Amino acid sequence: MTEDENYFPESVAATYDESSAAMFMPEAVDPAVAVLAGLAGAGRALELGIGTGRIALPLAGRGVEVHGIELSPAMADRLRAKPGSEAIGVTLGDFATTRAPGTFSVAYLVFNTIMNLTTQDAQVDCFRNVAAHLEPGGTFVIEVTVPQLRKLPPGQNAVPFHVGETRLGFDTYDTATQAMASHHVRVVDGRGSFRSIPFRYVWPAELDLMARLAGMRLRDRWADWSGAPFTAESESHVSVWEKTED
């Protein structure tokens, strides 16, 4: 990603927390923070795409030293305006290649953020960048959806994820390139707006191979942060890889 590919400018950052309110609820945040705090132990945590601090702030509140990498200055500014943010360092840049100071016992990418890297090369670079930050035995955690291609009837490339009176959301897929995009249509006071964000969907087995290329191996995979078993019916997964090489 580059600054030109920053899809979270001030116009988005200003309402990000409200538009993603469900993800800020304790039932969404607390299980993730508990897992990450356990993996961090007495070490440091690195969040890739730290955003406005949804996970970083409560994790720091549990005594974990957190540092973040963030491409969007506007999102980072929203984080810095929140109580407790003074304990969190932020490095601006593309998390596939940007180096943060020091080493870490855990690094993490949540809420489908790995898909913000829209090429396979960039996703591979991300794993290598994380491995360079991790201490030996450190872990890398990703929370991401399983591609919903089973919902695509023959000849169709779109899957709706929200249909309401004032908001419409749908994903489009290109199965030849693994490119996808999320499209958001909103109506406020009778006026409509449209926003589209590109992604690259990635399969669990593909992520495992990226991890191996970076000197990591799969340690755990769950359907969610509670540790529920990952099955063929799971719509998302939380995966943990461990660094095996220095």
Rank of each mutant, 00 (worst) to 15 (best):
K243M: 05
L46I: 00
L209I: 10
N116P: 06
G49C: 14
W222P: 04
A100D: 07
D30M: 04
I142M: 06
G137A: 14
R99H: 11
P204D: 01
S105W: 12
F140K: 02
Q123W: 03
M210L: 14
L39G: 09
R62P: 00
N112K: 04
L36I: 01
E206D: 06
A22S: 12
V35K: 13
L218Y: 03
P83L: 09
T103G: 02
G63P: 03
Q148F: 09
W203G: 07
L149P: 08
P204Q: 00
Q156K: 10
A34G: 01
R167W: 06
A74D: 11
P26W: 03
E242M: 13
A228D: 04
L59S: 13
C126H: 06
V146G: 05
D208I: 00
D220A: 02
P101T: 14
H184V: 12
D17H: 07
P160Y: 02
L152N: 01
K151L: 15
R99F: 14
L59P: 05
E242R: 09
V66A: 09
T97C: 06
T97L: 07
A40S: 12
V35H: 08
L79W: 08
Q178H: 12
A181V: 05
H237I: 01
R191Y: 09
G63D: 04
G138R: 11
E242W: 08
Y108F: 15
A122K: 03
L57Y: 05
E235S: 05
W203Q: 14
A45D: 13
D171W: 09
E18S: 13
A223N: 05
N6H: 08
G192T: 13
A107H: 08
I142V: 15
G137V: 11
V141W: 04
D94P: 05
S226R: 12
M216K: 14
I69R: 07
P83Q: 08
A76T: 10
R212C: 11
V159G: 06
H67F: 14
A28K: 03
R200Q: 11
K151Q: 15
V238T: 06
V124S: 15
E27M: 04
A45K: 07
F199S: 02
V163T: 08
P204M: 00
R212K: 12
A42P: 03
F95W: 01
W241Q: 01
N157H: 11
T177V: 14
A176K: 04
A45C: 10
S72N: 11
P31A: 11
R167L: 12
T52F: 14
A87K: 12
Y7A: 11
A211N: 10
L168D: 03
A22P: 01
Q178T: 08
L36M: 07
R128N: 13
D246C: 07
E135V: 06
A45M: 09
T97M: 02
V188K: 05
R186Y: 09
P154E: 10
E5D: 15
Y108I: 00
G41F: 13
Y16P: 01
N112Q: 06
G93M: 07
F8R: 02
H183A: 00
H183C: 01
A107G: 12
Y201R: 10
A181N: 08
G43Q: 07
I69H: 05
A211Q: 12
V188F: 08
P9K: 08
V64K: 01
V238K: 04
G227Q: 00
G43A: 13
M25F: 05
A214I: 01
Q123T: 02
V146C: 09
M25Y: 02
A232T: 00
D17M: 12
M210P: 00
A34Q: 10
